[in-house]
Design a protein around this nucleic acid. Structure first.
Lengths: 244, 244
DNA sequence: TGATACATATCATCCTACAACCTGGCCCGA
DNA sequence: TCGGGCCAGGTTGTAGGATGATATGTATCA
């Protein structure tokens, strides 16, 4: 049971906390790009942890391209443009407004990707997508399993584009959304809030089978707008004026 | 001068090398999700480094969500879907085929974002974009400065969407492309390969001023296809069949 | 004045030790 | 025989010091 809790809550380790603190300080602008961080020793004293912990925290920030450490001089904050990784703060996703932004990004990515997938999908891709579709709606289970199948459905479509970067990006965004929905379900007793509309998925699948990019794009767009609505996020006019 | 080299080459630190090794081992599938990593001591012996170095490497992988460490048991490989960060291998970008994929992703992101920006941009956004445009083409310098201005132009448009996630994603993708182009220029003596078409940018800007999403999207799409061609990447029919 | 040598500051790496935690087996009692 | 508690060993988490590598500023000397 404790193990289960650890898997969900992700026990906060000391380096993680230090890294999160520094990260926020940089994001908020208290430490501008080019600024020099306190020395490792100063930080270890400030947080009351060993220098080892501080180093692990800095190693993480450095890997992300947020700071650059130079031997003999110190560590410096880098400009946000030269980040080597994209990382989304899950705390921020508890805000509905941010959820809305994330859904908007997802809509952009997935709609056009669906069009690409319709043009390039092979039979093997269709099979994988169909399998996910069956797992999703076969039984009337609106549970974890169905959500997994839902995500798999979207990932398989992304894979059918043949573009690994698109696959990576879409997988990432979907996973963030899944996480925040999971959180919403934990705090909100309305479990049925998360409801999967199988019909929308079927329409996407049919467009892919037909190899019709425009239809696939439209179906995917409609689906994501619908999905956003079902979790209480109203998506503001994506592609409203540009459609016609 | 040495400082310059350090800023470009990013001196390989031991933890970074260990992390890269483990990362590749996971990506290549030699370590499947759920598998347990060797203990820290075994790894430190295997690589001939201290346990501290191994810990810093593992801390990075853990921050990315590639592995999960449990006290008293060991470290385990996580499924690729639950990554907490997106990280692009710059070595892989030296392959033209990957460049092509990245441009395709960029096209998807930026085209629709341009449409959003056209609908939502305020005067302040137009001013920032115009400033970048002036910096880009004002003087006839196809140098670093112009490339910076080019990137800034795109980032400012992303910012005008009012969606911070879109801004983050586009900044990230653009920066990856900039890096790989920089690398290509170093190895290839054809410096003028990287040429900035000011006219294409002007057309995008005018569509934003007019507040015309469809025109902005089309102009951006044309621009990115053109930019890809200018660096020797032919973009395969994005939005070809779905357009009509 | 100019250049070399030195002292200092800082990060990079290593080492040892202990704490916290999990696993498995052993022992003992019912 | 079975069940439960106890203990030993292994593994990660944290602490603290020691040494090497590198950059900066200063002082000394020709």
């Amino acid at each position: 049971m404790k193990q289960r809790l650890a898997a969900i809550g992700t026990v906060e380790t000391l380096p993680h906390r230090v890294a999160a603190f520094l990260s926020r300080e940089i994001e908020s602008g208290e430490l501008n790009p080019g600024a020099r961080l306190p020395t490792e020793q100063e930080l270890s004293e400030k947080f009351g942890v060993s220098r080892n912990v501080v180093r692990e925290a800095i190693a993480q920030l450095r890997a992300d391209g947020m700071i650059e450490a130079r031997q003999g001089i110190g560590a410096f904050v880098l400009a946000p443009e030269q980040r080597a990784a994209i990382r989304i703060d899950r705390e921020a996703l508890k805000d509905t407004h941010n959820m809305e932004r994330l859904f908007e990004l997802r809509c952009i990515l997935e709609a056009e990707s669906a069009a690409l997938a319709a043009a390039r999908r092979g039979q093997e891709h269709l099979d994988s997508i169909k399998a996910a579709l069956d797992r999703m709606g076969g039984e009337e289970r609106w549970e974890e399993g169905s959500i997994d199948a839902d995500l798999l459905f979207h990932r398989e479509i992304a894979r059918a584009t043949g573009n690994s970067y698109i696959h990576t990006f879409i997988s990432f965004v979907c996973e963030q959304i899944r996480h925040s929905i999971h959180y919403a379900r934990m705090t909100n007793p309305l479990h049925n809030l998360v409801e999967i509309n199988v019909g929308e998925h079927v329409r996407i699948y049919e467009a892919l089978v037909a190899g019709d990019p425009a239809a696939a794009e439209a179906a995917m767009r409609a689906h994501i707008i619908g999905a956003a609505n079902r979790v209480g996020v109203k998506l503001p006019l994506p592609k409203s004026s540009g459609a016609k």
